[in-house]
Design a protein around this nucleic acid. Structure first.
Lengths: 165, 165
DNA sequence: CAGTAACTATTTACTAAGTATATATATACG
DNA sequence: CGTATATATATACTTAGTAAATAGTTACTG
C-alpha cells in the first residue's frame, strides 16, 4: 500500500502530529494492515524533504505538527485520479512454478495441489468472515472480503487449468 | 518476484557468473519481467554474505563463478515448498478508495468507472494476446495471459459490486 | 578495413521503503 | 504505590532495486 499517500490524505483533512497519523492510519484501514510506527516518522521526513508537507511548529504538548502543502495536495490528487495498474503479467505463484521447472523439483502437480489446498482453506475462512461481517454490518470489511473471495475463485480456476496442462 | 530465489534456482542447475545469471533469468521468464543488471550483482553480494552461495574462483575468462551452498539449497527448497500467500485483504485500489473517502474526493463513482475502463481495455488487449499465443504456441505466456484474464474478470465483477453500494 | 553499433560483463553510489529498538512521559488500575 | 499500558518520537539499519559509468569483444556495413 502507499503509506506516503495515505498520510497526505490524513493531513489534507487537518494538521496532525506523527502519533496522530499513526492512529489515523490504523483507523482508516480498521487495523487490517499493520503499520510500523517508525515508518510514519521516516515517511514524514521524506515528505517534508520533498516539500509535500511542512511544519508550522509544535503544539501545546510540544508535538511537531504537519500540514500538507499545495504541492502535496496536487500529488495526492493525481495519485487518486490515476487508475491502479494491476501488474497484469506478474504472478507470484507462476514465478515459483517456473523456478520449480528449472530445478528437478519432485512433483509440480503436488505443488499446484498444495497451493490449491491453501486457497480452499482461505475460501472457507473468508466465507465465515463474510457471514460475520453481514451480521455486524461492517460494510468496509465486507467489501474487501467479497473482493478477496472473487480473487480466490479466479485463482483456483486458473490452478485447475495449469494442472491439466 | 523473488530475484534472490530465482538466482538460487539457476545456480542449482549449474555454476554461473553474473552475466550468465542475468541472461538465464531473462530466458526463464521469457523476458516478460525486466531485470536491472545491477541487481544481479547486488543480490549475489547479499547471497554470498548470507552463505547461500559461494565462489570457487574465476573461470578462464576471469568471470567470477558462483555455486549454491547446502544452506542455499535448503533455502530454495523451503521457498518452493511453501505456498504463496495471496495477501488476502490487501487491495491497492480499495486502499485508494478508502483514502478518497477520507478527503472530499469529488466523485467516487467516477473513480470506480475510470478503474473499470482501464480494466476493460486490459481485457481487450489480453484477449488479443491470447489469440496470438494460441497461434504461436507459446504455452508459458498463454497460461499467464489466461490467469490475468481471470483476475480481471473477478476485479470487474467486484467493481460493479462496490459501485452499487 | 575503419567505424560504429550491439553485446558481454561488472562496479558502485544511490534511493525508497520498511524494520527494530531505544527512549521517555503520561495515565490507568488494582 | 507500583506496574502495565498508552502516548510519542528518534534513529540506525536492512532489503530491494535503480541509474549510470566503465570497458572489452564481436558483428556488420559502407
Amino acid at each position: 500500500m502507499s503509506v506516503k499517500h495515505s498520510l497526505l490524505a490524513l493531513l489534507y483533512e487537518r494538521p496532525r502530529h506523527g502519533y496522530e497519523l499513526k492512529t489515523g492510519f490504523d483507523e482508516l484501514v480498521q487495523s487490517m494492515w499493520p503499520l510500523n510506527a517508525g515508518q510514519v516518522y521516516t515517511t514524514l521526513d521524506r515528505l517534508e524533504r520533498d516539500d509535500l508537507i511542512e511544519s508550522p511548529g509544535n503544539d501545546q504538548k510540544d508535538r511537531k505538527l504537519y500540514t500538507i502543502t499545495e504541492k502535496g495536495v496536487e500529488t495526492l490528487w493525481s495519485w487518486l485520479e490515476e487508475p491502479v495498474e494491476r501488474s497484469l503479467l506478474k504472478d507470484e505463484f507462476y514465478f515459483k512454478y517456473l523456478c520449480a521447472s528449472h530445478v528437478d523439483y519432485e512433483d509440480k502437480q503436488q505443488m499446484i495441489q498444495a497451493q490449491k489446498q491453501t486457497m480452499i482453506k482461505d475460501v472457507l475462512h473468508l466465507t465465515q468472515m463474510k457471514q460475520q461481517m453481514n451480521r455486524s454490518g461492517n460494510d468496509t470489511m465486507r467489501m474487501l472480503v467479497e473482493g478477496a473471495l472473487l480473487h480466490l475463485e479466479a485463482d483456483i480456476k486458473w490452478l485447475d487449468m495449469i494442472a491439466k496442462d
